[in-house]
């Protein structure tokens, strides 16, 4: 499972952030689409994509002969919520409801 370190290391590189920016503009691009107009070799782009995939920041989906790359916003949302989330009261009350719910269960 990807760790926080994988995510922050993947984000630390400007080329990888640029790839994420491009997917943010147009999601689901193939390796060929992503290489167009970038001053990087196809191998370099493929390697950066693999690092982004390992960090769960990009999800590759095979559709027919091509692999399409999607920006995965879930870990990015988690980074934001890590420092913002405590101000989010509805979630706190959801957690206490969960605690009550789970603690009421004897057999699990």
């Amino acid at each position: 499972m990807p760790t926080d370190d994988d995510i922050f290391r993947a984000l630390a590189d400007p080329s990888r952030r640029r790839l994420l920016d491009r997917l943010h503009l147009a999601d689901g691009q193939s390796l060929g689409d992503l290489c167009a107009g970038l001053a990087m070799t196809r191998q370099a782009v493929a390697k950066h994509l693999a690092t982004l995939e390992a960090a769960n920041l990009v999800v590759a989906v095979r559709q027919g002969r091509e692999k399409h790359h999607f920006i995965n916003r879930v870990p990015i949302n988690e980074i934001a919520e890590r420092w913002i989330g405590k101000f989010d009261q509805p979630r706190l009350s959801a957690l206490s409801a969960l605690k009550r719910n789970l603690e009421g269960e004897e057999n699990d």
Partner: peptide, 26 residues
């Protein structure tokens, strides 16, 4: 929906995982 899904999935993850942490501290 692309704005909503990340929040929903982060909530789901944290609810389930925090739940497993909350229990032993009963």
């Amino acid at each position: 929906v692309s704005g909503g899904w990340p929040k929903i999935l982060s909530n789901l993850k944290s609810l389930i995982e925090t739940g497993t942490v909350v229990l032993p501290n009963k």
